[in-house]
């Protein structure tokens, strides 16, 4: 079934990681709907939230391929875990003396905030899930949108430990030491 999926990933904060992830998705012909990246509570780690359209099996396949990227520590598809999703939009909308009060009413209904006022426009910040933000933008469209910027979705699964929760009792850093087995040591070098 094709639907919107939300992938969340814990990645090492190194150059090229975003590139590798985008490259893998592009190769499998996924169109990234949004991608949001930010640091988490542990130094040198970031969390990515990727939303994309796709068939369940294909998304699972690409998830496994993304998990192969060396810098990806964990990646999970939380689509079916009833996650809390939010995104933020900043909208600069035309506002004359005659339309301003109507806009403010809409802003109130959507619990959005006006963060900047100028004689002929307003900047409004709205937070909500994708559907709410889109409905809000549609309502403002009639007044004339001058600029629009959206963060893309971020999401957390509800309840206790999520798939990316770090268990502090266990060391996160998986330190590997490659020790040759005796058999490997004695391999015929032919």
């Amino acid at each position: 079934m094709t639907r919107k999926h939300i992938l969340v990933a814990l990645v090492q904060d190194k150059p090229g990681v975003l590139n590798r992830i985008a490259s893998t998705l592009r190769r499998r012909n996924f169109n990234i709907e949004s991608i949001a990246v930010g640091h988490i509570e542990i130094p040198h780690l970031s969390r990515m939230t990727i939303t994309l359209e796709g068939d369940d099996a294909k998304v699972e396949q690409v998830r496994k391929q993304l998990d192969r990227v060396v810098e990806v520590i964990r990646i999970s598809d939380i689509t079916y875990e009833n996650p809390v999703e939010r995104e933020m939009a900043m909208i600069k909308v035309k506002a004359s003396a005659s339309t301003r009060s109507e806009i403010i009413q809409i802003v109130d209904i959507f619990r959005a905030n006006i963060v900047d006022v100028s004689p002929d426009s307003l900047i409004i910040v709205a937070v909500g899930n994708q559907e709410k933000v889109e409905t809000f933008i549609e309502l403002l469209r009639g007044f004339g949108i001058r600029e629009l910027s959206r963060t893309g979705t971020i999401a957390l699964p509800r309840g206790g430990a999520g798939p990316l929760t770090i268990d502090e009792s266990k060391p996160l850093r998986h330190v590997v030491e490659h020790v040759l087995t005796e058999e490997e040591e004695n391999l015929p070098n032919w």
Binding site: V11, Q12, V69, V70, E71, V72, I73, R74, L172, R173, H174, V175, V176, E177, H178
Partner: peptide, 10 residues
């Protein structure tokens, strides 16, 4: 370096 430290590679 005696050890390789790659948390995402297992």
């Amino acid at each position: 370096p005696e050890k390789v430290d790659l948390p995402g590679y297992k």
